[in-house]
């Protein structure tokens, strides 16, 4: 689709400049998209690994906890863990990667996981809480990376939309318009020429 412009020489020059600009922008965006994709793929590989590990560890921890809840009555279990002494504070800061603001999570761990005595608790509670405790750090890393992945994905979609807009709409339109103006201009020139020739003939006939 050609742009609605006056087919003037000025316009042609402007459009030609825009075309050069668009081509350069397209190349840059394309490069950015490729780099984003590469990072995205790396991240996905990373996340898949951590996710498998976390899921396995969680499953094991839950299985262990399941049996603790069967060895101790509900009231005793609640008494044991109802007043926890371990706190995890999550400090979230922003960092810019490839022009994207990504969150950086920094956990601050305080206190210990054992918040109960020995006489009325099953020792299996220890190992079950221990495995849960261990998986928490990895879960935070996973959450952070998954957020990165999400933001990166959004950025990729946006970049691709721009690349496509440039590649399939703006650049062809510009080219078409340039062509149209060029043709229009040469048409004008031709008609001018023929008019001049006609005038010349008339003048000569007298």
């Amino acid at each position: 689709m050609q742009l609605e412009v006056h087919p003037t020489r000025m316009e042609l020059l402007r459009l030609k400049k825009r075309l050069v600009m668009a081509r350069r922008g397209h190349k840059l965006l394309k490069d950015k998209q490729d780099e984003l994709m590469r990072q995205f793929m790396d991240l996905i590989k990373d996340i898949r690994e951590i996710r498998t590990a976390v899921e396995k560890a969680l499953e094991q921890a839950f299985r262990r906890f399941l049996f603790v809840s069967s060895a101790m009555s509900k009231a005793y279990l609640e008494e044991a863990v109802g007043f926890p002494s371990k706190t995890i504070a999550l400090n979230v800061s922003r960092r810019t990667v490839m022009n994207i603001a990504v969150p950086e999570m920094q956990p601050t761990v305080e206190g210990e996981i054992r918040c109960y005595g020995f006489a009325t608790t099953s020792s299996e509670l220890d190992s079950s809480l221990h495995s849960l405790d261990q998986v928490v750090g990895e879960m935070i890393v996973l959450a952070q990376k998954e957020k990165w992945m999400q933001l990166l994905g959004e950025e990729i979609v946006r970049t691709r939309r721009r690349v496509n807009a440039l590649e399939y709409i703006l650049i062809p339109n510009l080219e078409e318009t340039i062509k149209y103006i060029t043709m229009k201009l040469s048409e004008l020139e031709r008609s001018n020429l023929s008019r001049l020739m006609r005038v010349k003939e008339i003048v000569r006939a007298h």
Binding site: K74, A75, Y76, E78, E79, G82, F83
Partner: peptide, 21 residues
Amino acid sequence: HNLKVALKENYGGEPMDSAYI
């Protein structure tokens, strides 16, 4: 057991009604 629950409730601030026997 109830004494422990009551103490934890008192210091921890979280109600633990279902832990009483």
